Simulated assay, not measured.
Amino acid sequence: MHESSTVPVNLDEIFSHLKRNLQIKEIVYKILSQNVINQTAQEGGIIVTAQEVQAEADRQRHEMRLEKASDTLAWLADQMISPDDWEVGICDRLLTEKLAESLFAKEVEKFFAQNRIQFDQVLLYQIIVPTESVAQELFYEIEEGEISFYQAAHIYDSDEKRRQQCGCEGTVYRWQLKPEIAAAVFNALPKEVISPIQTTLGYHILMVEAFIPAELTPQRYQEIRDRLFQEWLTSEINYRLHNQT
């Protein structure tokens, strides 16, 4: 919204809408986040160059297939922002990336080493049913070969999505599992069907398809770095909110 005339509502109406829909806190948090990022980057001498902004703008245009300048201007008009607004937004995101790397690049390997076990992954299948009697019956039928694990999940699982996927939960980290589930899963053998375990969700029958040992891949590096950065940013914002003068 470079100019109020580009939008058929005024700023007061926008602000009122945000308040009515309980979105003010989210917006304020984002503004405070950017303020903290800008101040910290300035103190650390971290900048984003015009060339970097241009390169990112070109990348985005290519990704969205905005081949002509007129296509880009039409897209910006549809987003109700000016070219300057777009470039400022790109600059903010690049600055955030640079600051996160500056603050936490050296901490990632240390964090990964200290928490390596939590980054072990497993390709997991499970069936969740509401009662112990059903869970035990299914477990025995699977063990005796009367029905396959996948068939049982497709018919009996309490979750529609999991039924459609024949019990497949996909690849999950150890830390994403409840402690009692994680203990059983990571002590099992591949393809072993684990006897029913009760949680607040019901009775779980589990099967491990494969174990994936923790490795500091580029994707995991970024996940850890971003996690550390967000924790730091939240702490900084909370400090400022509770220490206003």
Rank of each mutant, 00 (worst) to 15 (best):
Y156W: 13
Q165W: 09
I127W: 03
Q151S: 13
Y150C: 05
Q126E: 14
P130Y: 02
Q165N: 13
I127E: 00
Y156K: 08
Q165V: 01
Q126M: 10
A152G: 05
D157P: 07
S133M: 13
F139K: 07
Q164P: 07
I128A: 02
Q126Y: 06
E141R: 15
E144S: 09
S148K: 06
V129C: 05
L124F: 08
Y150A: 12
Q136K: 15
G145V: 02
E143Q: 14
Y140K: 13
S133F: 15
G145E: 06
L138R: 10
E143L: 12
E137Y: 09
V134T: 13
V134I: 14
Q151C: 05
E137R: 14
V134P: 03
I142P: 07
I155F: 12
Q126I: 00
I155Y: 12
S158Y: 03
S158V: 03
K161A: 13
A135N: 06
Y125R: 13
G167T: 02
S148F: 06
Y125C: 02
S133P: 01
V134H: 13
C166G: 00
Y150T: 02
L138T: 06
S133Y: 11
Y125F: 12
R163V: 01
R162P: 05
E160P: 05
Q164R: 14
E143H: 10
E137V: 01
F139C: 09
I127C: 02
Y140I: 13
L124S: 03
Q165Y: 10
F149M: 08
V129G: 01
E132V: 03
I147P: 03
I147Q: 06
E143A: 10
G145C: 06
D159E: 12
Y125A: 02
H154W: 08
G167K: 01
A152D: 04
E132P: 02
I128Q: 07
A135H: 05
Y140M: 12
V129R: 03
Q151W: 03
Q136N: 15
F149N: 01
